[in-house]
Nucleic acid binder design. Structure first.
Lengths: 180, 180
DNA sequence: CTCTAGATATATCATGCTGATGTATCTGCT
DNA sequence: AGCAGATACATCAGCATGATATATCTAGAG
């Protein structure tokens, strides 16, 4: 069976150096999480599958009784990663936003409630942007330019969104809304 | 057990009038799909659960041998929908974007491949925006303002994104990129 | 009038993900 | 020495995904 995107998260991270399953989860949470989240329940089984397919190799790095397994890319794995990355096929984008869903069904809300909700959305986007900002220096420091660019996109997106919802809240409040 | 967001998609749609499970799927694909997708595998079991909880009621609308079950909100269902919608608790936003993932691991690509990829991303966002644009008149015509505002947000977001990736592609191409 | 493609309608299933939890060890601080 | 928190791996119930199966109805072509 062909590997899903999560497999490539793993390959991509291992391309930066050997890591344990635990490492991979930590690194993914710091980097890819905002556009592709993973969980242990995916990572550990996937590591087994990738090993079986010969894309990665495990290496025992236990210290005393403390178990530790490092994985690293094989040549075949590197090749597979490159082939995937270089394929410009258009992939779909999935978004799940419960707050936007609430907004969509805002007929069930009063105007006041709607404004409060829009303010909450603005705040959320600002908070996420602020969180990303904190990690930006780290992204700027490492040598992979696109890591930084992707982070900049995330920050810009959340700031732009905060703005958009802020403006809509203002419009609604100042009564320029349609009747009813 | 407390209902998940998909349950509220159903309640929200039924708040607009009685519909069958099939209707709900069609309507969701036209409206909420861009920020909360659903599938039959969720809708039919959820309709059963919601009926059992007394939030919706089924009504047989079969014609001859042609089976058809319409569902409509109960007072309790309307109440539950409102309580959910009016709760301004900050919910997290999930994004899954395989193309952004590829971009993030673009070290595995040449500069030329990266530019091609960025162009593909720009095109994708433009296409999605164009698709939404087609449905905009419909959203503008119906009486629920937020339906239209959410659609406008979707359009604006995809156009803004298309722009952002277009600019980055240009920057990269014209050689203002970091060395390597 | 007949035929057929496509829309309507409901349902199911294998596969795999989510989010939480369990177990154990190690490290750094007080 | 003791303890909190980080490291490490693993598992599981519940739920979602995406495809597929079945059957009926409708509108338009010929």
């Amino acid at each position: 069976m062909k590997p899903g995107p999560t497999a490539y998260v793993i390959l991509g991270i291992l391309n930066l150096g050997p890591h344990s399953g635990y490492d991979i989860k930590q690194l993914a949470d710091l980097s890819t999480r905002h556009f592709w989240a993973t969980s242990y329940g995916q990572i550990y089984p996937e590591l087994k599958r990738l090993t079986e397919s010969g894309l990665i190799k495990s290496e025992d790095a236990s210290k005393g009784t403390r178990q530790r397994t490092l994985y690293h890319l094989t040549a075949k794995g590197k090749q597979t990663l490159h082939t995937w990355a270089a394929d410009p096929a258009i992939q779909s984008l999935e978004i799940r936003d419960e707050m936007l869903l609430k907004l969509f069904f805002a007929d069930a809300m009063s105007k006041k409630e709607t404004v409060t909700h829009l303010e909450a959305m603005r705040r959320r986007h600002q908070q996420v942007a602020a969180g990303l900002r904190e990690h930006e220096p780290m992204a700027a420091a490492q040598p992979h330019r696109m890591h930084h660019e992707v982070m900049k996109f995330g920050i810009a997106f959340h700031e732009w969104s905060a703005d958009w919802f802020g403006k809509l809240a203002k419009d609604l409040e100042s009564g320029r809304e349609a009747k009813k």
